[in-house]
Design a protein around this nucleic acid. Structure first.
Lengths: 206, 206
DNA sequence: ACGTTTTGTAAGTTATCACTTACAGTCTGT
DNA sequence: ACAGACTGTAAGTGATAACTTACAAAACGT
């Protein structure tokens, strides 16, 4: 049994370069030749690691989603819930721009006819939404006093769900705006802190 | 001088079919053969009306934007500003789904590297934003009393600008959600009426 | 009816696409 | 050292892309 199988590791190493390529040119606009150039490999070497261009794209989607959630986790760790959320609202815009996640999303949305791509994107949104709802309700129950330890009731969760979707909406527009240079970073920050802040905290301290 | 030139009219007639094709398959995913099939013409007949596939796409972007604004105008006409806005918030989601505007936007965003496509999209967003700001400030000044007829001041306009972007954000997410079946229509309605309503009207009547 | 122009139909061109095959090197456990 | 799997390089495959060319058939003003 000669030579150990390092394919899994190789895949992981190549994903950032693939992500960059897909983010730059979209799904249909990215060629396998381009992917090979981006990874400094030949096309058939990529095809030894994934069965198709689509598989490469789906792997990229998963990779970026994991990366994004990991970033959230890092922001939440070692901070009290309120401070963590405020911090995320401030930093989310900046971070989103750096990862290529939003461009991959646009690319995927253009291919939403394809059931696998569609499912991958939908799963990503749903998991992210669930995650935010969890963060929001954890914070809400903490606030009402750990002593009571009341379970988040149905109305609370429903409200948190709407709020979570709204935050995701702000994030989506911010991505579009960044892509098209619609408004300066300052406006983007105000969107997140002012509007986003108002959303999660109906009575602003003024 | 034989046969009048009806090209302009022909172009206008064909745009809806072209829009449908681009909306279905994205920009790069749509082939000129597909466009020909969608319009029931041959490829070279299309090329007699537009110089390239890109020109066809840009024409579609303009067409859908004009259509969307016309719809807004129709909603605003013959309604007092407040009622008109409420009505738009209720109907916007439904209407957006029917026109293919959002899918065209996704398609374009995947090609945002192309300066012409990028400019067309950016222009569309900016014009739409300006339009909403105008609607919002008209309403605000109306409210403070037509008698005073005070000019909208800078802070008002800035606030309206943020609100307008937020509404556009909700619209964008709604489109994504519709595309990916993220949540039911009811949630979508609540997003617009509850969150959207709160955005344009910080103190809800309760 | 005629001359000019637009319209319709078909075929072709060149490039590039996703994906494959062939084969020579190279590494590893034994 | 050597078998057997992995790695690298090159070339090739058929399909299909955007876009053209060629030419016959209408349509219109005169």
């Amino acid at each position: 049994m000669p030579r150990p199988n390092l394919q899994e590791q190789r895949r992981a190493e190549l994903l950032p370069a693939l992500a960059r390529a897909f983010a730059t040119d979209g799904y249909a606009g990215t060629t396998t030749a381009g992917l090979a150039a981006a990874t400094d490999l030949r096309e058939n070497q990529l095809y030894r690691l994934w069965p198709s261009k689509k598989a490469m794209f789906l792997a990229v989607v998963d990779h970026l989603y994991d990366q994004h959630v990991a970033w959230w986790e890092a922001q939440l760790a070692d901070r009290p819930p309120d401070a963590a959320i405020a911090h995320i609202l401030e930093e989310e815009g900046r971070h989103r721009g750096e990862s290529g996640l939003h461009r991959i999303t646009f690319a995927g949305l253009s291919e939403a006819r394809d059931p696998e791509i569609r499912a991958a994107l939908a799963g990503m949104y749903e998991r992210f939404h669930a995650y935010i709802v969890d963060v929001l309700t954890r914070r809400a129950t903490n606030r009402t006093g750990a002593a009571k330890k009341r379970k988040a009731n149905k109305a609370d969760v429903e409200q948190a769900s709407l709020t979570a979707w709204s935050l995701i909406a702000l994030g989506s527009l911010t991505n579009i705006a960044r892509e098209l240079d619609l408004f300066p970073v300052k406006t983007q920050e105000r969107l997140f802190t002012q509007v986003g802040g108002a959303l999660i905290d109906p009575k602003p301290p003024h």
